[in-house]
Each structure stands twice: as C-alpha cells, then as structure tokens.
Nucleic acid binder design. Structure first.
Lengths: 211, 211
DNA sequence: GATACCACTATACCAAGGTATATAGATAAA
DNA sequence: TTTATCTATATACCTTGGTATAGTGGTATC
C-alpha cells in the first residue's frame, strides 16, 4: 500500500499514549500497512527523543497521565516543531475538538474510531509533513547562503532588494560606488542568484524586509 | 463595547438559521452589544442578498431545513466567498466538528453555549474579516494596475520579473530593443512601481509566475 | 475626417550595473 | 611568519537600463 519510494525516506509515525494496550494495537496496525511506528508512554519520554529528519506525524492522546495533550500540542507549535498531530481520545467533546483543530491539528478522532479513518488521517498528516519538509529544506539552503555572506554583503543585499541604487547604498554606508558594486557582485555569486529578480524573491522567502 | 471607529465601517453579522426563535434571540443579543445583525431563514434567501463591503461574518446553523450547513459552507469557500463562519448546532458530534473546522470555520458551538463564547467567536471572526478585507483591497488595487496595462506591457512585465534582460525579451517577442524599453518604462509608470524590486514583489502578489 | 490609443522603430544621450586588474590596511588562523 | 579573509579603493572598460524626441502604421471611436 505504502511503497518506499527512491529518494523519499521511510516515514515515521510517533505514538504518544499512556495506555500500553492502545500503543500496542496502534503500532501493530501501522506495521500491518507498512508504516514505521515509534511509541512513547509519556511526554518526557517523547521529549528525550530527537525527531528523525523524515516525514513524520504524531498520534497524540488528549488525556495523558501527567499532562494534557492539547497543551502539549500547543507547546510543540510554540517551540516551532511543526509535526502534524492527530488526536485520539476516549472522552472527547466538541469544545475540546474545536480547541485542538484551532491549534492546527490534522484530525481529531474519538474512540472507538474506524481503523481506516485513522489511516486516512495519517496519510494526510504525512503528506503535510513531506510538504513542510520540502519547504523547509529549500529555505534552509537559502538561509545557509545568506549566512555565508559577510556582514557588509548582507547589508548591501538588504538595501539592494529594498530598491536602493548602488549610489544610494554607497552614500548611506559611507562607501565608494565601486566598493558597493564589488560587494554586490560577490553577494550575487554566493547567493547563487542568476539575476536580480531572483534575488528579490530569495529576500522575500528570507523575509529580509521584515526583520 | 464595540465602538464605531472612524474609517472602519460598521460590521455586519449574518445569521442563517431556520428556527425563528434562534434568529430572534441571536439578533437581539448582537444588537445589545451594538452589532448590526442580518437574519436569513434559508440558504436561498441568503444567496439572494448581496454581501456588503464591510467586515462581516456568518453564524450558520449546521442543520437547516432544506440544506446542510457544512455543505453550504464548503460551497461558499469553493465560490471564493471568504466569509468567516461560526457554526452553531443543537445536534453536534465530534466528526461533524472536525469536518467544519477542517473546512476553515472560525468556531463550532454546540447548544447550549455561553453567550460570551459566541461573542468571542464573533469578535475573532470580524477581526479575520477585516484582515482579509484589507489584504484584498491591496491586491485589488494591484490587479487594477495590472489590468490597465496593454497586452504587450503585461508580456514585458511577466518576462522582466522572471529575470530576462531587455535584449532577451526583445528576441523572444521579435521586437527591437528600444520597443521593449519603452513598453517597460510605460509599464513601470502604470504599475506605480518606484523600482524594479518593488515590481518583482508586486508580481509575486499577483502570482504572475504561476499563471 | 479628426482624435485617441496602441504598437513599433530609430537616433542620441546619460545613468546605472557589472567585471577585471591592481593595491592596501586589518585581523585572525596555521 | 605566512596565509587567508574581509574591507576598501581606483582606473578602465563594457553592458544594460532608461528617457527624450521624432516618426510610421493600424484600429477603433466619435
């Protein structure tokens, strides 16, 4: 059903539930469809694990022994860990569902649920994870390029993409025109921008205008 | 509580519910906090109304007499009518809630709910409506500028922001260099772009690269 | 037929961008 | 000490962008 494609790494489904029976049944369900599962009994146990750099999602019980799944989800989001989350719960209600979905959960399943519903949710979550991974790897590459610039080159890039002429940049930085041109040329090479339009779009992705 | 600010038009809250008692109680609740309400008993009645160009949201009953609120919401989204929607229902369950939230609803309230919860949801919805309105008015202005360009000028703009040199544009369009320069100059004036970087960002907003 | 708009071209000129070569001071690492 | 990197500058040269002026031809509107 789920084939291992060349180039795309094997996805991982994390399961965080304090009930051993649930952990077992879920992980065996996942294995039966060829998905790799990784189970955790507590928030602390999960936090001690470093997440693999593959498309992954988290199946999260709302009511954990020592924690609230919703709060933990919000904490993950606040920490910038963008892991698609699927909630499962035995004691759900509508306000809880709304809260979970507002926080960005992919799905919210009340027990008992159909296995297929969970598998569908996982498929969607992993798809989102792949997209985010692809997007972040692009912007990672961009950030690396930008970080490889010297301070001056970064300054010149910011000012250039904001629309300033070389002459204006030179005035504001108290430099000669030729110096600005050279910084600009080096910057374009390091950023691997084939033309100025491309550079402007890179700056947009890096949100250089805002910061 | 909700003051009429100068410059910001009076928001409208649409109410679509087939129960007259609900319509009455909701609209009097809204009026009591100074909000303008506009009530509808059926989907057809709502569709016959042209929406005002002010921040607005829709309070939508899930179970209507001749229609499904969730489906109607999806239809609105599909038609590009981006009106923040708050669902209310007397017979809700978790899957229904998930479906509504996935479609982009602002909130989902099961009766009986606290009045304050609804008012909070409305405040959030109207805030979103304002943001969308502001964003769309900006891109409307941009689209008007772009539409005011002649065909040639649009072509030249697309090619310029994709990074092509005037010479390359001239070759591809079988024009002389000077003709391209003139189209480009006229285009910059009409787009009110102060520099090329700004033009690239305008093109991004118009998503000229995709289409 | 006059007017307006669009598209296209040419000449001429100036401003701006970009590169190569060469030089030089400052600083930090091997 | 040598090496490397960053910073800054100058001269020279070429390409590209942009504008003004002037003119041609087509099309549509009044």
């Amino acid at each position: 059903m789920i084939k291992s494609m060349p180039g795309v790494k094997q996805p991982i489904v994390y399961i965080l539930d304090d009930d051993p029976a649930v952990r077992d049944s879920l992980s065996s369900l996942l294995r039966s469809v060829g998905l790799q599962a990784s189970v955790f009994a507590s928030v602390t146990e999960f936090q001690q694990t470093s997440l693999a750099a593959v498309p992954s999602c988290l199946i999260l019980d709302v009511r954990l022994q020592f924690a609230n799944g919703l709060d933990f989800h919000r904490q993950l989001v606040a920490e910038g860990i963008d892991l698609p989350v699927i909630f499962i719960t035995g004691h759900g209600d509508i306000p809880m569902t709304v809260k979970a979905m507002k926080s960005g959960a992919v799905d919210f399943l009340a027990k008992p649920f159909r296995e297929q519903d969970l598998l569908d949710a996982i498929a969607l979550a992993l798809q989102k994870a792949e997209q985010r991974l692809a997007a972040s790897s692009v912007s990672d590459a961009l950030r690396n390029c930008f970080a490889s610039l010297t301070n001056r080159e970064q300054q010149v890039m910011r000012m250039a993409v904001s629309g300033l002429l070389n002459k204006q940049i030179a005035d504001q930085l108290n430099l000669s025109l030729i110096t600005v041109k050279i910084h600009r040329g080096n910057m374009m090479k390091k950023m691997q921008a084939r033309n100025f339009a491309e550079l402007v779009r890179m700056a947009e992705q890096l949100s250089l205008n805002k910061a």
